[in-house]
Design a protein around this nucleic acid. Sequence first.
DNA 1: CTGAAAGCGCTTACAG
DNA 2: CTGAAAGCGCTTACAG
Lengths: 373, 373
Amino acid sequence: MAQGALESIRPYNRRVSPEPAATTAATTRVTLADVAALAGVSASTASLAFSGSGPVSDATKERVLAAASELGYAGPDPRARSLRRGRSGIVGVVLEERVRAAFLDPVKIQTLDGLTEGIAPLGAGLLLFTDSGDPDAPVSLDTAPVDAVVLIGCSPKFFRQVEALQRRGIPLVAIEGAPGGDIPEITIDNREATRLGAEHVRALGHTEVATVTLPFEPTRARGELTPEIEAGATVDTAVERLRGARDVFPGIRVSVAGASSIEEGLEAARPLLADAAARPTAIIAQSDLLAAGVIQAAEELGLEVPGDLSVIGFDGIRVDGLQHDLTTLVQPSVAKGRAAGEAIVRMLSGEAASGTDFTSTLHVGDTTAPPRA
Amino acid sequence: MAQGALESIRPYNRRVSPEPAATTAATTRVTLADVAALAGVSASTASLAFSGSGPVSDATKERVLAAASELGYAGPDPRARSLRRGRSGIVGVVLEERVRAAFLDPVKIQTLDGLTEGIAPLGAGLLLFTDSGDPDAPVSLDTAPVDAVVLIGCSPKFFRQVEALQRRGIPLVAIEGAPGGDIPEITIDNREATRLGAEHVRALGHTEVATVTLPFEPTRARGELTPEIEAGATVDTAVERLRGARDVFPGIRVSVAGASSIEEGLEAARPLLADAAARPTAIIAQSDLLAAGVIQAAEELGLEVPGDLSVIGFDGIRVDGLQHDLTTLVQPSVAKGRAAGEAIVRMLSGEAASGTDFTSTLHVGDTTAPPRA
DNA sequence: CTGAAAGCGCTTACAG
DNA sequence: CTGAAAGCGCTTACAG
């Protein structure tokens, strides 16, 4: 276990001798007590001079600050402060993937951005918990000094750690995913939004429609959807969006992508478009990146979008380099993160917080049109 | 200042009464002392039972664990542990941008991924410091309980905070950027690598060559390079790569992009390609995303790559959706992060650590060829 | 294998 | 406006 390594390493700056500071300079740690002594005040007063949260005369304050700079004291030790105050100023974020996988998803990045905004009033930092690639180094979520934790798209596999955090009274919020427990969840209307998109496609007159979906499970089997894949689904987003599409087109053809990317969208679309006789006139993609891939696949075959093929996405992100105004379901990615942050802030101030279910809106761009007559 | 907000919020789980725990359940915090008392052992022994770092009889250990689970004790408080041990298990990462901007750069993401690997032996988490968008919420780098800090592409504007961290004896490593101080730096051979690429282009027979660069300053002025822009440059990467190109093509035409993206590459390339009479036969792009944009611009005009235009990039990332095998300088993005992590680990175990200068390699793909005769 | 004691460095009521 | 005292919750030598 990783813990072991941490323990075996000696503190970088262990106090070398019991003598007062300022002799061994760099290797000896200066404390508030040292500063107070040099300034000729009590530790309490010195503390007040730094935090500014009490009445201290300007003269005293100056003396303390002068003593601090003379000793090279950089301010109160955050570790001691956080023990005393009961707050560390850190919010944990759990992403159940490697960094490089999690940040390939523009929606997650935007959500994280919104979260940063949402917790800004706390002045807290975000502590990232991701898969390190080392199976022996578990996310040590339950030994980290966090004030609160946000789970983004996490599976129930964190249940044990989540429980431990709850026992410790640490506020938790989940953005999608179903981590278990009675944690406030921030969700979006995956099914309803997709249905809306499908209805738009149907209203244009399309009847031959296919869909390219996100993976149904972490193993990321791809290709034509089989009953086995569907039965083993663990990713709600894919399942719900498929339901929405089926609400309108019950027998819709389904091609499963291996991830949310242009490349995967391209590969998932190829077989759908291969047979000119049985070609759909519209494809519903479960993400904008997949939609961009579908468009590439169409263009590869010399098909025009939207003339020969209508394409609709999901997310409402700007796909870098895509020259179309994509028709898509715009989900409030940033707002989701912000809502999670705000819930955290409320919970930390003792209020109750509940989840939020956001609504996506249909943006009609230039990638959907009536089928050719 | 953000600090104020943190202070004004009362601790979420303030102990309500001075009585021993286990009565008010959720709102009362259970401590190791409570567990020890219930188990009928000393606090020291209880502590040993949890950390496993001492000889405790199995019977005693079991008794302690049973008491813990009876009281709902989730393990030692990380805040207290970190004060006592002098380690928090947290490594800070500073990115001088908003989350959404930083993570648009695939190289940064890969570097972060490598960093995660590099610090895996510590079992530590990454604490993200980014621009929150709120000018009143400064990155509170110097009040966070970090064991070490990695700066990624940071400007000297962090000098003051960096100094404070150094005074506190906190190990620092910088990945590119010049944060000031005598911090070990992880760098790559921007100039030499670009020169290598330019030589490849020249060897193919090109003489009419242009370059699309990264921004030269955070304000991100774009367009033709002016002496003013060049004089005010603060981004080493852009400057060094331009030097490398000029080493081979001294009078090279320069178009500055506003960011590293396909879209910006497209826009920066358009004016270069607009005039068919004065059109370059090769373009050196300072990133792969820019190169992908250059290719799009060429294709827009009906030019073939590499037949009508050779394009070379920098980074060696896979550009999602790009159907070319891009000729590029492959830089070891993941290794850079890993090296930073390993340096941190060494410094935390008391060893000295120096920086590393990595070498990039030329990958010849299918986007460069001799100019048409 | 177990316990008593000290202390990590700070902040916060509480008196003055 | 300032100081003495207590304590945040834990871990670590040190004895036994």
